[in-house]
Amino acid sequence: MTFKLIINGKTLKGETTTEAVDAATAEKVFKQYANDNGLDGEWTYDDATKTFTITE
C-alpha cells in the first residue's frame, strides 16, 4: 500500500510517499524521516486517504 506524508513545517513544506504493509510501518518510516529532517510537530492520520500530516 502507498501512504503519503504531508509536511507543513516552519521551514520544510511538501509531501512524500512510502510503500508499507500497514499504517504502523508507514508511521515509523515517516517519523524517522521527520526526525532526520529536524521536524517536530503534531501528527494526524486519515485512514480513508492513507495520509499522515505533520504540522509544526
Rank of each mutant, 00 (worst) to 15 (best):
V29L: 11
G14T: 15
N8R: 12
T49N: 15
N8F: 08
K13G: 12
K28D: 11
Y33H: 05
T44E: 07
K28V: 06
K50I: 03
F30S: 00
T11E: 10
L12Q: 09
M1T: 14
E42H: 10
A20Q: 06
D22Y: 04
T44G: 13
E56A: 05
D22Q: 03
T18C: 05
F52H: 02
T49V: 11
Y45D: 00
M1V: 08
K13N: 10
A24Q: 14
L39C: 04
T55K: 09
D47C: 04
E42P: 05
A26P: 00
D47P: 13
K50S: 13
G14Q: 12
G14C: 04
K10E: 09
T2G: 08
K28P: 03
F30Q: 00
F3Y: 11
D22T: 10
M1G: 11
A23D: 05
K13Y: 15
D40F: 10
A23T: 12
E56V: 07
T44L: 09
T16L: 12
N35H: 14
G38K: 15
A20C: 05
K4Y: 05
A34N: 02
Y33P: 00
M1Y: 06
T11G: 08
G38M: 13
A26R: 00
D22P: 01
Y45K: 01
D40V: 14
F52L: 01
T2M: 06
T16C: 05
T51G: 02
T53M: 06
V21F: 09
K50F: 09
D47M: 13
I54E: 00
I6M: 07
A23C: 05
F3M: 01
A20S: 13
T44H: 08
G14Y: 08
A24F: 06
M1N: 14
E56P: 04
T51N: 03
E15H: 05
A24V: 13
N35Y: 11
T17W: 14
A26M: 01
G9Q: 12
W43Q: 01
A24N: 10
E56F: 05
D46R: 04
E19Q: 11
G41Y: 05
K31S: 06
G41K: 01
N35E: 09
F52M: 02
T25Q: 14
A23K: 12
F52I: 02
D40L: 09
E19H: 12
K4G: 04
